[in-house]
Nucleic acid binder design. Structure first.
Length: 191
DNA sequence: TTCGTGATAGAG
DNA sequence: TCTATCACGAAG
């Protein structure tokens, strides 16, 4: 299980290094193939820029806490709080499903494994993540945590950085990270 | 490309 | 109160 100290550094390193780790969620799990970093400072796309409630969230929580919010009236987004050298969040954007695939298919009402978790709103639906898990410590419960994938690490993962998706402000920063060539990401790499 | 859908925050 | 905005997804 990845410990809280992992999230006690800065969002960019955390986002990059989470690629290849496994997200364990109850009976389901998947390998993280896409993330984005959001910095609490100097990043207009981060919620902290416009939302006092998000700044308060950072103040009262510790590194590794889940930041779950509702967007566009229908989608939940899962983020992890990074708090240490620099504060911010890592948005979990896509997974390669590993365990509990049948359960994910039921929740998504979809059979195509490649499209089960290929987007931030899709993976929360597949794993049944909602505001029930908001502020949950993701470094404490072995059923809701991240696990480092030692085998993948040894293979020296090829991680690509490009521009974040679906934002207008601070859009040029290369703060989206994907596993090179993965067919499980939300959108192809741009340059 | 277009729309559904609802929380949040700032303005009036 | 009212309105703009939004880290999306599915259909067409």
């Amino acid at each position: 299980m990845i410990r809280a100290s992992f999230f006690g550094r800065d969002p960019l390193n955390c986002a990059r290094e989470l690629i290849g780790a496994e997200l364990i969620w109850g009976d389901c799990s998947g390998v993280i193939v896409e993330t984005e970093a959001y910095n609490a400072i100097n990043d207009e796309a981060c919620h902290t820029f416009m939302r006092p409630s998000t700044r308060a969230f950072i103040d009262r929580n510790k590194a590794g806490a889940a930041y779950v919010y509702f967007n566009y009236g229908m989608h939940w987004m899962l983020n992890v709080l990074v708090k240490g050298d620099a504060n911010g969040f890592v948005l979990i954007r896509a997974l390669e499903p590993r365990a509990g695939i049948e359960r994910m298919k039921e929740r998504r009402k979809l059979d195509d494994v490649k499209r089960l978790c290929s987007g931030p709103g899709k993976l929360t639906q597949a794993l049944d993540i909602t505001d029930r898990q908001h502020e949950m410590d993701l470094c404490a419960d072995p059923r809701h945590c991240f696990a480092s994938n030692t085998r993948a690490r040894l293979r020296r993962l090829d991680v690509v950085a490009d521009e974040r998706i679906g934002i207008t402000r601070s859009a040029h920063l290369p703060w989206r990270f994907t596993l090179r060539g993965s067919p499980f990401v939300s959108a192809p790499v741009r340059r």
